[in-house]
Amino acid sequence: NPLPEGCSLLEIERITQSVLKSHMETSQHSTEELKRMAWTLYSPEETRSYQTKSAEVMWQQCAIHITNAIQYVVEFAKRISGFMDLCQNDQIILLKAGCMDVLLIRMCRAYNPINNTFLFDGKFATAHLFKALGCDDLVNAVFDLAKSMSRIQMTEEEMALFSAAVLLSPDRPWLTDVQKVQKLQEKVYMALQRCLQKEGASEEKLAKMVSKLPIMKSICNLHIDKLEFFRLVHPETAYTFPPLYREVFGS
């Protein structure tokens, strides 16, 4: 594949290292930590206690977890070379539009495909634990995505580059400098392709990763729909959600 104009192999290598470093430094859990915790599961009693919480309490708890995770994504973005050279309007647009996608990619790390569980609040949980949210379709869609993404077996380097490429999507509405974002994304995609070639991965692997984008988009939309509905039914609780969560997912 030809390199984008004005881009050397050395630059591609520099981007790869920078994105990987950013990803590793801003991941909430190290791979060793996740391996160690993989079999720490919620007991049936603990699961039931989550299931019997009110929707308001469970939503609040999830909003707090998502907000924490978003802060790490913001840090990840800041450390991607070139991101901070974009104007702040574009930085915010990219983060608002792409942080959920990045969270969904990152979630794969905290998913155990053997027992279909996710790390949530310190232990691994099944989809049933989230019953009180009243969003079974959303929860199941997230678990299904994690299951299908875990089959791709992305390395940390691939995950880092894929996350950066998704975050740097030039088609987000209201961007000021589309070209600048596009150039950055091209470089990251090039780095991802080189990384896959280097590992001897099949060409299908990138196609499989990209094929998850529409599913991720539908999950993001579903989350917004559920949040809007929740806001209608429980406006007081929605008002107490973390300000960053409201900022990112507000209309």
């Binding site: 801003t26 802060q71 840090e75 800041k78 702040q88 983060l95 960053l244 900022e247």
Partner: peptide, 20 residues
Amino acid sequence: KEKHKILHQLLQNSTSPVDL
């Protein structure tokens, strides 16, 4: 700017993962 006050702050802060 007011609408994205926290994002602005986070983008301007020189935070490290330990601070998060």
